[in-house]
Amino acid sequence: MLFGKNPIITQTKVSEFAERLKENKIMGTKCKKCGQIYYPPRWACAKCLTEENEWVELSGEGKLATFTTLNVGGTKFEKDIPYTVGIIELKEDQNIKIMGWISNNIDRENLEVGMDLKAVPKTLEDDKITIELIKV
C-alpha cells in the first residue's frame, strides 16, 4: 500500500502511514519527549532529534483553510485536470493541517474558506491510497 496518486518517494520509515489509512485511520506522530505532533508523520522529532515517537490518530475533522483548482498539471497529473485540492486545519489543533483532494460531491462554486470538512482515506487503484476532503 502506497500513499498518494503518483507516489514519488516510497521508501520511508513512516510507510505504516499508508497501511493505517487502509484501516480508515489518519495518523500523525507524536514525540514522546516533547509532545510535538507531526502531520505529515515523521520518524524523528525535529525539535528533540529523537526517534522516540508514537503514532496518534487524528480526527480528520476541521475547517477549510485554503484550496485551489488546477487547470494545468505537471506531466504526472495531466490526465487529472481539472482537479481541486485543499488544506484543512484540525478542530483539535489548528496547527495540524491536512491536505486532500476536495471530494467530487462538493460543488466547486460552494467552496468557502472556513467551511467544515473531514479528511478521510480513499483507496485508489494499483494498491494506492490517498486522502479526500468530504462534507461533514
Binding site: G4, N6, P7, I9, T68, L70, M99
Partner: peptide, 15 residues
C-alpha cells in the same frame, strides 16, 4: 515536497 505534496496531490507551483 514531492513525498507529501506533489506526488500525492499534484499541487504545482502556481497551485
Amino acid at each position: 515536497d514531492s513525498q507529501w505534496e506533489y506526488g500525492p496531490f499534484g499541487v504545482t507551483f502556481p497551485g
